[in-house]
Structures are given as C-alpha cells and as structure tokens.
Amino acid sequence: MSRWLPRTYLTLIYLLLYVPILVLVVFSFNDSRTGYEWGGLSLRWYEALFNNRAMVQAMWNSLWLALSAATVSTIIGALTALALHRYRFRGKKVLNGMLFIVMMSPEIVLAISLLALFLLVGLQLGYVSLLLAHVTFCLPFVVITVMARLSGFDERLPEAARDLGASDFTMTRTVLIPVIMPALLAGWLLGFTLSLDDVVVSTFVSGPSYEILPLRIYSMVRVGLKPEVNALGTLLLVFSLVMLMLSQWILLRSKR
C-alpha cells in the first residue's frame, strides 16, 4: 500500500497538470480560427508560425536569455544563500530585506524602477539589460530554495572538512555544493521558468535589438489569440521533452 498510494497520487496530479497542455496541443491542429469548435485537422498554424521569422528569432532569443539568466541567478543565489547561512557579517537583515522587496514588488514597479536605473547609468537596452533584470527577479527564488535546504544541514560536516585542512573554497566545492545540489537544480528550474515567462519587466527593459517571445505572445492577444500560439506552445513543449529525454539518455550512458 505504501507504494501504490504515492504513485497513484503523483499520476493524478500529473494528469491534472497536463490536461490544459493537452488541450493546447490538440487545438494547435484545429483548422478553425476561434478555438471553441473543431474545424478539422490542419497544419496551417505550424506553417504560419514557421513563416513568421521574427517569431522564430524571438523564440531563440528567449531560450538563450532564460538559460543564461537561470544559470547566473543560480550561481549568485547559491552564493548569497551560503553567505547568509555560513558567514557572519554586518547587514544580514538588510540583505534579507532586499530579497524580500524584490519578491514583493509588483512587476510593474520593478520594471519601471529598473528601467530608470538603466537610463541613469546609460546602459543600452538589449540583452545585457534583460539579463540583469531577469537575474535580479529570479534571485530570491533561488536563495529561498537553497536556504531551505541548508537549514536542515548538519553543521558538523563543514567543520570536519575544515579540520582536515580544506580551504573555504574547497570545502564549499566538495562538501556544500553536493549537499545543496537538489536545491540548486530546483532553483535553476524556477529561474528558467520565471525568465521564460516574464512579460512585464521585459516590456520595459528590452530594446528593439533583442525581442523575446513572451512579449510577442502577450501583445498577440490584442487582436485575438491566434491558434498559432497553440502551435508555438506545442513546439515549446516538444522541444522541452526532447531536451529532457536527451539529457536522460546522456546520463544513462555516462553511468554505464
């Protein structure tokens, strides 16, 4: 019983999570424009999508931005969490407070205040400004996730490492990082997801040189949600699943 109950529960929740996605996939093959009735099978939305070069470019831009933002925010976020957890220094409360403020600030406030800052220091809007902004709003999510993991951590391990003569850096690398790995993974995923999804902040801190996908999708709804968006969602899903399987395959091979 203790085996099938969790499994049934997991399956149920996964089903619920995937139902809306399945709807999206099915409707991406729907010939009808409106979406509430079935107009026959068609690939026209995929064709329309591929002919939209700007959209495809925006998709790549988005993926690249999300990858880099998630990675940078995981590194900085993990270091922040480690510093908060291990080091004594002045202003810990201030640091915590700042992270809280980032989480709490309505996106529009974050967006306009960051834009004002970038203009103040004369930063050209584009990839760099987007990266700085995305890393900033992903940061607290990583820190909180890693902190939760660290708080349950046995303090004697790093002490032991240090007694054995390991430097702070070595100890972090060999003892702490492996311990917080699940939290790093979780934090990276949160960051990637947030970055891929952000509309409001990006609207303000992006420039014409670097248009990203959510902006296009968001403004698309003004003239009615086109079924092209369903096709796009399906492609993103397939892409993610392929990446996922690829990584699993590599993992299995390397273990062998």
Partner: peptide, 23 residues
C-alpha cells in the same frame, strides 16, 4: 519527474491561462 513537473511551465503561462479558459 521533477522535469516533467516543470515542463508544462515552459509553455508560456499566458498561453496556459488561455487553455484553462477553453476548459
């Protein structure tokens, strides 16, 4: 499984909110 949990979230949240509307 963790990845499977997060994958739906890589299709834009706005698009998924619209999918909820269809339901």
């Amino acid at each position: 499984l963790i990845f499977l949990l997060i994958v739906p979230f890589w299709t834009n949240s706005l698009v998924r909110t619209y999918a909820l509307k269809l339901i």
